[in-house]
């Protein structure tokens, strides 16, 4: 079991109705964590459309969920 802080941006923040939250998770990896989060908030985004970051660095979906980490699901960017 890990406790993480989830960060939401742009349309994910609007869909979740919050910018961040602390959650306990038993997910084996970041992919599993997204699946849990997606189900809880009803996110429309498929995993393949997103990237994931841990503590301000891009990570891989198969990476484990580090206890105490800050995890962000990154929707397609539109800067510039």
């Amino acid at each position: 079991m890990a406790t993480v802080t989830l960060l939401y941006f742009a349309s994910l923040r609007e869909a979740a109705g919050l910018a961040s939250e602390r959650v306990d998770t038993a997910a084996a990896d970041l992919q599993g964590l997204y699946a849990e989060t997606q189900a809880r908030h009803g996110f429309q985004w498929p995993l393949a459309a997103l990237r994931v970051a841990v503590d301000g660095e891009f990570a891989r979906w198969r990476d484990a969920v580090p206890d105490g980490a800050e995890v962000a699901f990154i929707p397609p960017v539109s800067g510039g």
Partner: peptide, 17 residues
């Protein structure tokens, strides 16, 4: 990771992804 939220003349707004 920067996102653009556009406001439109018709009054609505939306995120660009």
């Amino acid at each position: 990771p920067i996102w653009k939220h556009e406001h439109y003349r018709q009054g609505d707004a939306g995120w660009l992804h």
